[in-house]
């Protein structure tokens, strides 16, 4: 079995999770504050990848980053960057697609903290950033872990959106989920079973780890 699709999936999931930890946490914190029209709109957009068919999201990304037109053409001409059928394109699609898995649980956990925790920190003269770093985030560790693992596992399992924007280029964009599809198309069920079992085992181990870590803190890691 060629392990490169599995390694590529793991690399994609790692890069996506790190980027989403950097972008998703501030976004979740912003969303956890008092609801405004702008925040409601942002929440709807954030939730869209959960309900939209991945192929639709992939199609829009394909159109947006096609080097033949619009933004994709501009990126290609000015920065010599091509996102379609490339690893950076997969990362971008994964970040958008997995964003709700990072921001959602973190936002919910922040909203469940008593408002007086942040208020107490403010009265001690601490800024919003200091409060987030020293008071809020340390008190939602189970949710942070859950969000991180869900993001990683969800990115590992992506299929439609990565196929649309990345295609099936060996060593470049052929991730494990695409390799399963490819093997089935070629009637190589044994190879498909190997890739499937590998993905199943990794995902199972990750989720089991979260359940064990969170067992004393929440009823299930999905709460």
């Amino acid at each position: 079995m060629d392990l490169s699709p599995v390694w590529l999936s793991l690399k994609l999931a790692t890069v996506t999770t790190i980027l989403l930890l950097m972008m998703g946490l501030p976004l979740a914190w912003w969303l956890s504050k008092k609801r405004t029209v702008l925040r409601m709109l942002a929440e709807v957009l954030l939730t869209m990848p959960l309900v939209l068919p991945p192929s639709v999201l992939g199609f829009y990304l394909l159109l947006a980053f096609s080097p033949q037109q619009g933004l994709g053409k501009w990126l290609h001409n000015v920065f010599d960057v091509q996102l379609v059928f490339s690893f950076p394109g997969l990362v971008l699609a994964s970040v958008i697609y997995s964003l709700p898995f990072m921001a959602g649980p973190v936002r919910s956990a922040l909203q469940q903290l008593p408002p007086s925790l942040a208020q107490a920190s403010y009265t001690l003269g601490k800024s919003e950033w200091q409060t987030l770093r020293h008071v809020l985030l340390p008190n939602i560790k189970p949710a942070l872990l859950t969000a991180t693992v869900l993001t990683f596992a969800h990115t590992l399992g992506e299929f439609g959106v990565v196929l649309m924007i990345g295609g099936n280029i060996p060593g470049v964009t052929r991730v494990a989920s695409v390799a399963v599809y490819d093997a089935v198309e070629q009637m190589d069920y044994s190879l498909a079973a190997n890739y499937s079992l590998t993905l199943f085992a990794i995902t199972f181990a990750l989720l089991m780890g979260v359940f064990i870590y969170n067992k004393n803190q929440v009823k299930t890691p999905l709460e």
Binding site: S116, L117, A120, T123, G125, V135, N139
Partner: peptide
């Protein structure tokens, strides 16, 4: 003025203690 500029010593009815900090760390944070 923001709470940070008013710098009042506020004792909350629900205490609003930080679960992640020890007694000493609460004071060292301030």
């Amino acid at each position: 003025l923001s709470p940070q500029k008013r710098l009042t010593g506020f004792v909350f009815q629900d205490y609003a203690l930080f679960p992640n900090m020890t007694v000493l760390q609460h004071l060292q944070y301030a």
